[in-house]
Design a protein around this nucleic acid. Structure first.
Lengths: 211, 211, 211, 211
DNA sequence: AATGAATGAGAGTTCATTCAT
DNA sequence: GATGAATGAACTCTCATTCAT
């Protein structure tokens, strides 16, 4: 997006701007995030911003894109180590919560995207759901979960993750000087997983089959 | 909040302003919603605004408060007619979806509240969750759902509702001239309910009740 | 053009802005004439400007319109008192030079209009020429000047007036603190009139009518 | 002006910049002509500009100088071939119109010079007038035109040429995609020449001196 | 000789808010 | 109670110019 630097120095500067923008958007929101604040945070001159971005919305889109890529990678990475599908789902969720706890920017930024950049909002959710859908389809075909419309369930899962994560992260962020939000407590996480796993569990065999 | 009118004429004017603000916030977002736009939409002079509200944020809080009250009322009303707790949950959800389909303002406005008015955001979610929690506790005590940490599950339910509703409402709003978003399709609604009901269902008796 | 004031106070303010703009445009040119300079000169706040004008170009157009109207009126007024057509032309020219000596803004502003507002440029010249054309047609029909394409000659006359006036006014303006430019010297004016009058004079009778 | 190149390569680069500047100034005007646009048009790097010019005004002066030299050369060249002074004047004018039709830049640029570079403006007009004055003096001494203040008449002639040329060139430029402006029509040119020639014609001998 | 990344003063413009009417 | 003229801080963005490479 926007202009690509032609030198190594330019590449470094551009990256500093994206990083700074993420921090500023996360701390004061899109509208109070002035270009001046972003460039100050990045330690570059005001005019430098316009060397690499067409405007505030352009860098916003890039920040969303960047965060989206990173959260999905964190989830994929975590799921890889899992023994089975259920375990994968578990680890994916855990990674999601961990990531958002470390990057409150994700919530704070995404929730503003609706008016700022509807395309970015949609892209973000759609891509994450896509990851769930793939996993759910495989699980369904393997009989690990019951037959279902995976699309609907995938959106539901994302809703659960977002709401619980938001509650945890944002509530904590509200506390002054709360430092980095702690991870979601284990008990709550387990309660959520029980809800999800039962919601997707295969039908119990009619009468246990047994004699 | 803000100043209370002393005459009937004043009361009318104030109400017109709140209604106008809901429309303007919903269509252009908080930051692009200027006081001028709101007063024009309300058909009153610019200065009149400050007779009744301390500023933009004050009327925003009031709009959130108003929408929150109305959506909860719609849900309560719908649940009343239900035969049992499960049915009540069902009807509550349905009412929620119906309300948001008719008032896309709810999503559009709430999602901006984070930076505009964190207190309003929290109030909105907390109150809705409160309704769920009450219902879930009663259902749990009645044995209609399994023993659980109703708080966590209540937030999860709200996450599901918000995400599926948002997807439906916002996606449709994106379509040009799509008119009012249709209600969520029955099949999808049922899939969601299956997921929720199984997630909360009581333990099957150990061996099917046998001998 | 732009927004019309609704109160007497507003009308006064708007007029002050137009007057200030004329002065600022004349002294520093369109591009160096910032809105701040104009509002300072007018003694009003910066934001006030945008209550009445859409932007810099809008007030520029209005200034051109205003000057154009005034210079034409000065010329018409002067010509009225003349005994015959030739005299009228003479007095018109004199009025033109007098006006531009008193309002150097006319040259300085018009000459910038080409890129700023081509429409305004054209309007200005076309209207002035229109005045000449009317006068020339009448003179031609009355046999006071020879048959000719009055349109071409009208443009030529305007060219003469503009160039001699510009030379006089601008050259003087260049001298620091030269004060208001003096009027064009009588000898030069007469030389110019001789040139013009001969250029338009009716054919001398074939052989002087002889006896 | 500015820095002189030391190598042949440098000379080429500098010339490319002047040519590019003429085009850019003519198409968007002095103020919208950024150095970036000029260097892009010239196909050189931004920094290269400052190797040869002190700034925007410096290259502007050079462009004016260049155009002035060329238009005068075209006029001189054309006049050379003429049989007599009147014919020379005719051909000079014709060359002037032809040149400006081919280089609308002349008008567009000169008319901006007033605030950009008053010296350049003056130089341009003064030099052209100088050519007329020389010709007129000779004609006057030869009795081809009447005794007159050649200076005033020379400025008048230039005014005529500029106004008629401007009207023709600029009006055409306004028409979208009008391509290069056509030359001024013959009939109009002749009308103008009739006006000029009569304006300068020697006194008709009182009655032929007779008897 | 040539380049383009970097800069910041200054431009045009918006808008929440005040206040005299 | 109602109005809208007035304000100026703060915003986004441009561009002539410098300088290290």
């Amino acid at each position: 997006m926007s202009t690509t630097p032609r030198t190594a120095r330019g590449t470094r500067t551009r990256a500093r701007l994206v990083e700074a923008a993420e921090q500023v958007f996360a701390s004061v929101g899109y509208h109070d995030a002035s270009i001046v604040k972003i460039t100050e945070q990045a330690g570059v001159g005001l005019g430098t911003f316009y060397l690499y971005f067409d405007g505030k919305q352009a860098i916003f889109d890039e920040v969303v894109e960047d965060l989206n890529r990173r959260v999905r990678q964190a989830m994929t990475e975590a799921a890889k180590a899992a023994a089975n599908r259920i375990e994968a789902e578990r680890e994916g969720f855990r990674a999601f919560f961990r990531f958002t706890a470390e990057h409150p920017a994700l919530y704070r930024i995404i929730r503003q995207a609706e008016f700022v950049s509807p395309g970015a909002l949609r892209m973000h959710y759609t891509r994450i759901v896509h990851g769930y859908v793939e996993g759910l389809k495989a699980a369904r075909d393997a009989g690990e979960i019951r037959p279902m419309d995976v699309d609907t369930v995938a959106w539901a899962l994302m809703g659960i993750g977002e709401m619980l994560g938001m509650r945890w992260v944002l509530w904590h962020a509200d506390r002054e000087g709360g430092g980095p939000a702690p991870e979601i407590p284990e008990a709550e996480f387990e309660e959520m997983m029980r809800f999800i796993e039962r919601g997707m569990a295969p039908e119990a065999p009619a009468d246990g089959g047994g004699a």
